[in-house]
Design a protein around this nucleic acid. Structure first.
Lengths: 210, 210
DNA sequence: ACATATTTGTGAAGATTTTCACAAACCTCT
DNA sequence: AGAGGTTTGTGAAAATCTTCACAAATATGT
């Protein structure tokens, strides 16, 4: 296995998986690449190619077993386990993420929250206490954190990032709209609302004479 | 002008712009593609190629005038104006977005908020009242909305989307983790935290034997 | 058991995106 | 004014990603 798989392929697998789980709930037994493509907004060939990079999961003439393919894709994506996540930043975005049901329901558990605001430290969110900034490293170790979500202001992001990485975290989701530097062996994903809005701005400006 | 410009190029321009604005604040007069590349985490050739798609903004031997390039990129991205945005969904994510300073400071003004929860309707957020779901279309028209942000549960997203589009909005930022269908002339950007986390899950699963 | 209809898996072709590499343009210093 | 050092802008090459198209495999119906 493992040529190099593109990020796009992985992201599409995540989409396919959600659709497969919906189909599973609906009780659908098998699905063709054609049907899945329609739901995913992709092409059938794309789906087959994506899947074929990891193996041969379908039956010619029949399509894919929904249950089996879902299990396979979960395995590929590393979702057969639970992930322990640290949330850094308990502001508005942080608190929205903490309560976001689609993360915990999919195996991403926020096991510790850290904030630099003394006003917030010591408060309790559900099962977890908000810990002070200077306990970041300790919290990461004690709670055996696998991934971190950075929901801190842009000017603080790189410094927090460096500490999180030094503490051993190798997967980070960043909400600060600034380019961050990470070592080669650390995975960083950015969620940047400004980019998305500005991309919309560009698109609308192209055609609308307004 | 205008061959077809790729989405990636536009997204990078948004990144460059933020760096240019930082440089402007610092009082830097000119910047080379090399320097900008280092800050953006891109390559110098990439930056020059991106910019060259829109014109010739630099001076050989000198680099780019920070102020001039920032203005040019703002123009390209359609940021020389203000955008009027409707926020649909006043839950946790919606309220975090409403208060997010990086949107309003960059010309994206949330001018109306709609929610289906009677509990929330009628409350006031800053200048804006939360309006009931059935006033969605009216709010869009009255407030001359250009773009919408959908922060509603996945199961409601497509229906809300259809109404927003029917009301004339042609740019939408969607937070629901479901694939949405839009007409060809409508621009949709997705922010999907589940995809990002699952992509991290895949990456970490690859090397970490754990 | 055979013919017909589906649907996968995948090389090859096509399209898109990124990187390379260098001539042309510009600045600075003497 | 000329030499030397920078840096852009851009064709061409390389790399990556998507679509095509079809043989092989399976199911179904007679």
């Amino acid at each position: 296995m493992s040529h190099k798989i593109s990020d796009s392929t992985i992201r599409r697998l995540s989409v396919y998986l959600r659709l497969l789980e919906d189909l599973e709930v609906e009780g659908t037994a098998t699905v063709s690449s054609e049907t899945l493509a329609r739901q995913a907004g992709a092409t059938a060939a794309q789906i087959r190619k994506d899947l074929s990079l990891f193996g041969s999961f379908g039956k010619r003439g029949m399509g894919y077993s929904v249950a089996e393919l879902a299990t396979r894709v979960r395995g590929i994506l590393g979702l057969a386990r639970q992930w322990r996540v640290a949330l850094v930043g308990a502001g508005r975005i942080g608190s929205a993420l903490f309560a976001y049901p689609n993360l915990s329901s999919r195996g991403f558990h926020i096991v510790t929250v850290v904030d630099s605001d003394p006003e917030k430290v010591g408060r309790r969110w559900g099962e977890v206490w908000i810990r002070p900034d200077d306990e970041l490293e300790r919290a990461i170790q004690e709670e055996q954190v696998d991934m971190a979500i950075l929901a801190v202001p842009g000017h603080a992001a790189q410094a927090v990032m460096d500490r999180v990485v030094a503490a051993g975290v190798r997967g980070i989701l960043n909400f600060a709209p600034v380019p961050l530097r990470v070592p080669e062996d650390v995975w960083l994903k950015d969620v940047n609302l400004v980019i998305e809005m500005e991309a919309l701005s560009y698109a609308l400006s192209q055609e609308a004479p307004d």
